[in-house]
Computed example of a mutant assay.
Amino acid sequence: MSTTQSERLRGLLEPLVAARDLDLEEIDVTPAGKRRVLRIVVDSDEGVQLDACAELSRAVSEELDESDVMGGAPYVLEVTSPGADRPLSELRHYRRATGRLIKARLTEGGELVARIIAVDDEGLDLEVPGVKGRKPTPRRIAFGDIAKARVEIEFNRKAAEKSAAAADDESQEEA
């Protein structure tokens, strides 16, 4: 039974990653001139610190040196966390994005920009931002209705949250 290099790498690396309470998100081997780049992407519910990546990189390097998974050709090892533009494709990705704004392309066409309020096994509870001063509206969407989704980067999120909190305070004072 023949296995691909990617399958052998996953079998070798998953126990190392899991032992550090991390999720192995991606393994990618790409040519880079005369070398190859082995990129390992890891994540966790608490995020991934630089020290954790460095420690995992040392452990992976030792394990790879003792095996023949990468063959004899030179390679560069990169251990990293997912970027901000990573697609949301697993239930755990959506759970980790709770409270964040996402942009979803829907299977029936169109796009939706909304904040994830809650996640369960069937789908998402979202808050669709109001337009022109209107209040946000709740919306439920099933995972099957999402073709593709990503977290939207919010540069002014704290300012928006402060102004929303101030507006709530004012409306409560008036009542």
Score class of each variant (00 low, 15 high):
1 M>G: 14
3 T>M: 07
5 Q>R: 15
10 R>C: 12
14 E>Y: 06
15 P>N: 06
16 L>S: 08
17 V>G: 01
17 V>S: 01
22 L>D: 02
23 D>G: 12
24 L>Y: 07
26 E>L: 12
26 E>A: 13
30 T>P: 00
32 A>R: 09
44 S>Y: 00
44 S>R: 00
44 S>F: 00
45 D>N: 04
46 E>G: 06
47 G>M: 05
51 D>I: 01
60 V>S: 03
60 V>I: 15
70 M>V: 10
73 A>S: 14
79 V>W: 01
80 T>G: 03
82 P>V: 00
83 G>Y: 03
84 A>M: 14
84 A>P: 05
84 A>G: 06
88 L>F: 07
88 L>K: 08
92 R>E: 08
100 R>Q: 10
102 I>D: 05
102 I>M: 09
104 A>G: 13
106 L>S: 06
107 T>D: 05
110 G>N: 06
112 L>Y: 05
113 V>A: 03
116 I>P: 04
117 I>D: 12
118 A>S: 10
119 V>R: 09
122 E>T: 07
124 L>E: 00
124 L>A: 01
133 G>I: 06
133 G>F: 04
134 R>Y: 06
137 T>G: 08
138 P>F: 10
138 P>C: 07
141 I>Q: 10
150 R>F: 05
152 E>L: 08
155 F>A: 12
156 N>M: 10
160 A>K: 15
160 A>F: 06
163 S>E: 15
166 A>P: 01
166 A>G: 03
170 E>G: 01
172 Q>D: 11
